[in-house]
Nucleic acid binder design. Structure first.
Lengths: 111, 111
DNA sequence: GCCCATATCTTCATTATTATAGAATTAATG
DNA sequence: CATTAATTCTATAATAATGAAGATATGGGC
């Protein structure tokens, strides 16, 4: 089976987290962001794996940060979404919205 | 790895398709619905596998329909979302909304 | 009426992709 | 060197994808 050409679930979540305007997206923070917003624990290894896939597909770029952490620790790798990545996220997002539109059972938070 | 307690991507799509008010959700139609709304071809076998998982997890129930097809064909198996399934779909949907909120790069269709 | 070509829906077997826990590694600080 | 933080590795399991086969009905020719 060849590689999927569309975003998987965690990939979408990670990409959206990277797209936050904060501009300091890195592994651990992304995982925390997803955990906060989804209420589900996400394994760090999964996030890193997804980041790698996304970069490999050209949806993200990475850059090694300065080791300027307050108290020790390895330097962070920061991620940024590419234009292609943004487009991709938009499409995946739109698809889910289409699938969930006009579903009375879902109309709770939209009201 | 024990079974995930949350929905996979295809599982969510299938569950949402089942929840459409039409009330006649069955394999082939669900696959068509997903293909239409996502622009991606999804293999029938994948849909059936997802349906099976969802039923096993208690998010769907199934019932065998009458073999009243117009022109040949096997009897359909109809699916219906359970209350738990609806709740689950709602949560997944809400998570997506939370993750995509306040993302300027996404604000195209919401405008 | 019986058989077969056809249509529709479902299942099977196999392989690929993604997610996970947990240990290990790297790298900085004091 | 102990501590902290971030990332990577390893092995395994769940999820997803696919082509092909199987099951079951219809309707028309004869």
């Amino acid at each position: 089976m060849r590689r999927r050409e569309y975003l998987g679930q965690l990939e979408l979540m990670v990409l959206l987290a990277v797209m936050r305007p904060r501009g300091d997206a890195y592994g651990v923070l992304i995982a925390r962001d997803i955990a906060d917003k989804s209420g589900r624990e996400v394994a760090l290894a999964s996030v890193y794996a997804a980041l790698e896939r996304l970069e490999h597909k050209g949806f993200l770029t990475s850059s090694l940060g300065q080791p300027t952490a307050e108290r020790g620790g390895k330097a962070r790798t920061y991620f940024k979404a590419t234009a292609t990545g943004v487009r991709e996220a938009r499409e995946a997002h739109a698809t889910l919205l289409r699938l969930s539109a006009d579903l009375p059972a879902l109309q709770v938070e939209t009201a």
